[in-house]
Protein backbone atom coordinates (compact mmCIF):
# COMPACT_ATOMS: atom_id res chain seq x y z
CA UNK A 1 0.00 0.00 0.00
CA UNK A 2 1.39 3.35 -1.06
CA UNK A 3 -1.29 5.53 0.45
CA UNK A 4 1.35 7.84 1.97
CA UNK A 5 3.49 7.81 -1.14
CA UNK A 6 3.12 11.56 -1.68
CA UNK A 7 4.31 12.48 1.83
CA UNK A 8 7.83 13.37 0.81
CA UNK A 9 7.38 14.10 -2.87
CA UNK A 10 8.49 17.33 -4.45
CA UNK A 11 5.89 19.74 -5.87
CA UNK A 12 6.80 18.90 -9.48
CA UNK A 13 6.17 15.20 -8.79
CA UNK A 14 2.81 16.05 -7.25
CA UNK A 15 1.97 18.18 -10.29
CA UNK A 16 2.88 15.26 -12.55
CA UNK A 17 0.43 13.04 -10.65
CA UNK A 18 -2.35 15.59 -11.04
CA UNK A 19 -1.66 15.81 -14.78
CA UNK A 20 -1.78 12.05 -15.42
CA UNK A 21 -4.94 12.18 -17.51
CA UNK A 22 -3.67 14.81 -19.92
CA UNK A 23 -3.89 13.49 -23.50
CA UNK A 24 -0.29 14.38 -24.34
CA UNK A 25 1.04 11.92 -21.76
CA UNK A 26 2.99 9.00 -23.27
CA UNK A 27 2.38 5.62 -21.74
CA UNK A 28 5.75 4.15 -22.55
CA UNK A 29 9.24 5.48 -22.95
CA UNK A 30 10.51 5.63 -26.57
CA UNK A 31 13.47 3.51 -25.44
CA UNK A 32 10.99 0.70 -24.80
CA UNK A 33 9.64 0.51 -28.33
CA UNK A 34 11.92 -2.41 -29.25
CA UNK A 35 10.56 -4.46 -26.35
CA UNK A 36 6.98 -3.46 -27.18
CA UNK A 37 7.44 -4.47 -30.82
CA UNK A 38 8.90 -7.84 -29.76
CA UNK A 39 5.88 -8.35 -27.52
CA UNK A 40 3.51 -7.27 -30.29
CA UNK A 41 5.01 -9.73 -32.76
CA UNK A 42 4.73 -12.55 -30.22
CA UNK A 43 1.19 -11.58 -29.22
CA UNK A 44 -1.71 -13.87 -30.19
CA UNK A 45 -3.56 -12.55 -33.22
CA UNK A 46 -6.81 -13.77 -31.80
CA UNK A 47 -6.57 -11.46 -28.80
CA UNK A 48 -5.89 -8.16 -30.55
CA UNK A 49 -7.95 -8.84 -33.67
CA UNK A 50 -11.05 -10.16 -31.98
CA UNK A 51 -11.06 -8.47 -28.58
CA UNK A 52 -9.92 -5.06 -29.70
CA UNK A 53 -9.97 -5.20 -33.49
CA UNK A 54 -12.44 -5.65 -36.32
CA UNK A 55 -11.99 -9.33 -37.12
CA UNK A 56 -14.82 -11.64 -36.16
CA UNK A 57 -13.55 -14.31 -33.80
CA UNK A 58 -14.74 -17.23 -35.92
CA UNK A 59 -13.13 -15.86 -39.07
CA UNK A 60 -9.80 -15.23 -37.37
CA UNK A 61 -9.79 -18.72 -35.88
CA UNK A 62 -10.62 -20.34 -39.24
CA UNK A 63 -8.05 -18.34 -41.19
CA UNK A 64 -5.37 -18.96 -38.60
CA UNK A 65 -5.61 -22.74 -39.06
CA UNK A 66 -3.58 -22.72 -42.27
CA UNK A 67 -2.43 -26.05 -43.73
CA UNK A 68 0.99 -24.50 -44.30
CA UNK A 69 1.39 -23.90 -40.59
CA UNK A 70 -0.78 -22.60 -37.78
CA UNK A 71 -0.82 -18.84 -37.46
CA UNK A 72 -0.94 -17.86 -33.81
CA UNK A 73 0.97 -14.63 -33.58
CA UNK A 74 1.55 -11.46 -35.59
CA UNK A 75 5.02 -12.72 -36.35
CA UNK A 76 3.64 -16.08 -37.58
CA UNK A 77 1.38 -14.20 -40.00
CA UNK A 78 3.96 -11.78 -41.35
CA UNK A 79 6.51 -14.55 -41.93
CA UNK A 80 4.08 -17.18 -43.20
CA UNK A 81 4.74 -18.50 -46.73
CA UNK A 82 1.11 -17.94 -47.71
CA UNK A 83 -0.51 -15.63 -45.21
CA UNK A 84 -4.30 -15.30 -45.67
CA UNK A 85 -5.03 -11.95 -47.28
CA UNK A 86 -8.06 -11.50 -45.03
CA UNK A 87 -5.90 -11.80 -41.91
CA UNK A 88 -3.42 -9.30 -43.33
CA UNK A 89 -6.32 -6.96 -43.97
CA UNK A 90 -7.55 -7.41 -40.40
CA UNK A 91 -4.08 -6.54 -39.11
CA UNK A 92 -3.89 -3.53 -41.40
CA UNK A 93 -7.32 -2.30 -40.23
CA UNK A 94 -6.44 -2.93 -36.58
CA UNK A 95 -3.22 -0.95 -36.96
CA UNK A 96 -4.89 1.86 -38.91
CA UNK A 97 -7.53 2.25 -36.21
CA UNK A 98 -4.81 2.43 -33.54
CA UNK A 99 -2.82 4.98 -35.56
CA UNK A 100 -5.79 7.21 -36.25
CA UNK A 101 -7.47 7.08 -32.85
CA UNK A 102 -5.88 9.65 -30.54
CA UNK A 103 -7.25 7.73 -27.57
CA UNK A 104 -5.79 4.38 -28.63
CA UNK A 105 -3.34 3.15 -26.00
CA UNK A 106 -1.21 1.24 -28.51
CA UNK A 107 1.90 3.30 -29.31
CA UNK A 108 1.48 4.95 -32.72
CA UNK A 109 4.93 3.77 -33.75
CA UNK A 110 4.02 0.12 -33.15
CA UNK A 111 0.75 0.57 -35.03
CA UNK A 112 2.73 2.12 -37.90
CA UNK A 113 5.04 -0.89 -38.14
CA UNK A 114 2.11 -3.33 -38.18
CA UNK A 115 0.25 -1.23 -40.75
CA UNK A 116 3.04 -1.03 -43.30
CA UNK A 117 4.22 -4.59 -42.64
CA UNK A 118 0.75 -5.99 -43.42
CA UNK A 119 0.53 -3.92 -46.63
CA UNK A 120 4.05 -4.94 -47.70
CA UNK A 121 3.46 -8.66 -47.05
CA UNK A 122 0.14 -8.63 -48.95
CA UNK A 123 1.84 -7.05 -51.93
CA UNK A 124 4.87 -9.35 -51.89
CA UNK A 125 3.16 -12.69 -51.20
CA UNK A 126 -0.08 -12.10 -53.06
CA UNK A 127 0.73 -9.30 -55.47
CA UNK A 128 -2.28 -7.44 -54.15
CA UNK A 129 -2.81 -4.10 -52.54
CA UNK A 130 -4.90 -4.00 -49.38
CA UNK A 131 -4.71 -0.21 -49.06
CA UNK A 132 -5.98 2.83 -50.87
CA UNK A 133 -2.67 4.55 -50.20
CA UNK A 134 -0.66 5.36 -53.30
CA UNK A 135 2.68 3.73 -54.08
CA UNK A 136 4.64 6.76 -52.93
CA UNK A 137 2.84 6.94 -49.61
CA UNK A 138 3.44 3.22 -49.00
CA UNK A 139 7.11 3.57 -49.91
CA UNK A 140 7.51 6.54 -47.57
CA UNK A 141 5.83 4.60 -44.78
CA UNK A 142 8.05 1.59 -45.30
CA UNK A 143 11.13 3.80 -45.36
CA UNK A 144 10.02 5.39 -42.12
CA UNK A 145 9.76 1.96 -40.49
CA UNK A 146 13.18 0.93 -41.75
CA UNK A 147 14.68 4.15 -40.41
CA UNK A 148 13.62 3.28 -36.85
CA UNK A 149 16.58 1.86 -34.95
CA UNK A 150 14.31 -0.09 -32.60
CA UNK A 151 12.79 -2.22 -35.39
CA UNK A 152 14.38 -5.69 -35.30
CA UNK A 153 15.95 -7.44 -38.28
CA UNK A 154 13.24 -10.05 -38.57
CA UNK A 155 10.57 -7.38 -38.97
CA UNK A 156 12.75 -5.41 -41.37
CA UNK A 157 13.09 -8.47 -43.54
CA UNK A 158 9.40 -8.42 -44.47
CA UNK A 159 9.56 -4.72 -45.37
CA UNK A 160 12.83 -4.51 -47.24
CA UNK A 161 11.51 -5.74 -50.58
CA UNK A 162 9.15 -2.74 -50.57
CA UNK A 163 11.78 -0.16 -49.71
CA UNK A 164 13.26 0.30 -53.15
Amino acid sequence: MNSRAADHSQPDALAAMLALDEPAQRLWDPAELAAILRHQMAAPLAYDLTVAGPGPAESVARLSASPAGEIRTFSDLLHHPSPPIELLTYVKDFARAARNDPASPLPKEIAGVLYFAAIAVARDRHGRSITRLGEDAVREGVEWVLAQAWVDEQTRSVLKPRAG
Binding site: I36, A43, P44, D48, A52, P107, I110
Partner: peptide
Protein backbone atom coordinates in the same frame (compact mmCIF):
# COMPACT_ATOMS: atom_id res chain seq x y z
CA UNK B 1 -0.83 -11.02 -23.71
CA UNK B 2 -0.09 -8.05 -25.93
CA UNK B 3 1.04 -4.42 -25.81
CA UNK B 4 -2.58 -3.46 -26.27
CA UNK B 5 -3.56 -5.36 -23.13
CA UNK B 6 -0.69 -3.81 -21.17
CA UNK B 7 -1.44 -0.33 -22.49
CA UNK B 8 -5.14 -0.66 -21.76
CA UNK B 9 -4.31 -1.64 -18.21
CA UNK B 10 -2.09 1.39 -17.69
CA UNK B 11 -4.61 3.76 -19.28
CA UNK B 12 -7.43 2.35 -17.16
CA UNK B 13 -5.42 2.70 -13.95
CA UNK B 14 -4.47 6.29 -14.77
CA UNK B 15 -8.09 7.15 -15.47
CA UNK B 16 -9.18 5.58 -12.21
CA UNK B 17 -6.65 7.68 -10.34
Amino acid sequence: RSPLAASNCLVTAKRMF
